[in-house]
């Protein structure tokens, strides 16, 4: 098989230096990651904050050494042959404002083309073309410090595509962008992959919809481990026989979601408190189980404010695998 990315038992441990409040310790950011991404795939890494997405990208882009295991990109080992990997890749991280603010958009991009050995004439053509596509040609000669955050991120994304990489890594490319700009970026990514079927793109996101809409395959990652890896359709198909309800209720009055999970026919329940109300996402093995859920709620004097049945989404796949929602996973990781 023609693989653009291949990892085997890839692991990364960060050594955290102690300080006055905490002793030195080790943090396992990635454990035993086995991942194969085929050439030509648009591959998504989906996971909550702290899952290890950025760490994995940093290793694959030769920015960070793996603690153990193997990672190969475009056929070369990232640890021992970084100089072979680098000309074939590029990377963009979203949600950060970086760049040489004193250079114009064109100058910033031109300079990076130089670092990749692209002749000026070709570089300038590509810059014009790419800026056209993201509707930024009118800002070509604006100093990048004068751009809005969103435009600067678009420029940064153009920098990634400019060098025509064999494998491109996008770390949260739409983070912090408004709806329209996100759409622009997604369309651009999709168009580029269609126009260049031998190129590979790996993107990380914690937007379910983005992974669902855009990616050929998705790996769901949490706590440094890959929990599932398949096409979005196949991942959701695992839940095909399940029924999913979104239920808005009055506050839970101390009722634990686990108590609901104990009911027959209820597979997973995730819970999110909203002001003056709570939202329950119920994954049920069959429709009938809804009755016992409603009974338990009314028995506790909890009112149902709204009830919706819906198709399974990747969010449900995540809940089913991890046992709670992405949001809950993130507050666990941060608290």
């Amino acid at each position: 098989m023609d693989l653009a990315i291949h990892t085997e038992k890839l692991a990364r441990v960060y050594k955290l230096r102690g300080n006055k409040k905490e002793a030195a310790k080790e943090l396992v950011a990635l454990r035993d990651i086995n991942l194969d991404v085929r050439r030509g795939e648009l591959f998504g890494l989906l996971g909550p904050n702290g899952a290890g997405k950025t760490t994995l990208i940093k290793i694959l882009t030769t920015l960070l050494a793996p603690s153990s295991g193997v990672a190969r990109v475009a056929g070369y080992d990232v640890a021992s042959e970084p100089e072979k990997v680098r000309p074939r890749i590029n990377m963009v991280s979203g949600g950060e404002s970086s760049g040489y603010g004193l250079l114009t958009v064109r100058e910033n991009l031109w300079m990076f083309a130089q670092f990749y050995g692209i002749p000026s004439k070709l570089a300038n053509e590509r810059i014009k073309q790419l800026l056209d596509i993201v509707r930024m040609s009118d800002r070509m000669n604006t100093k990048s410090s004068d751009l809005s955050t969103g435009l600067r991120q678009k420029m940064n994304i153009v920098r990634g595509f400019l060098t025509d990489p064999e494998v491109l890594f996008l770390d949260e490319p739409t983070l912090g962008l408004d709806v329209e700009a996100s759409l622009d970026v997604r369309n651009f990514v999709r168009g580029w992959m269609e126009a260049n079927p031998d190129r590979t793109l790996l993107l990380t996101t914690h937007y379910m919809v983005e992974a669902d809409e855009l990616c050929d395959r998705v790996a769901i990652i949490n706590g440094g481990q890959v929990l599932a890896c398949d096409t979005p359709a196949n991942l959701k198909r695992q839940l095909q026989s399940d029924v999913i309800y979104r239920m808005e209720v009055s506050p839970l009055n101390g009722l634990q979601p686990e108590a609901l999970e104990a009911l027959g026919g209820v597979r997973k329940v995730s819970h999110e408190a909203q002001d003056g109300a709570a939202v329950l996402e119920l994954i049920l093995a069959e429709d009938d189980a809804l009755g016992s859920v409603v009974n338990m709620l009314t028995g506790k004097d909890i009112h149902i404010l709204n009830l919706q049945k819906r198709e399974p989404s990747l969010e449900d796949v995540f809940v089913n695998l991890v046992g709670h929602s992405m949001k809950e996973a993130e507050s666990d990781a941060n608290g």
Partner: peptide, 20 residues
């Protein structure tokens, strides 16, 4: 399983030092 190696050579592998 081995990842196969690149599609052709990238623009320049070496010789970019002068440009850099």
């Amino acid at each position: 399983m081995q990842a196969t190696q690149g599609i052709g050579k990238p623009a320049k592998e070496r010789g970019v030092s002068g440009r850099t």
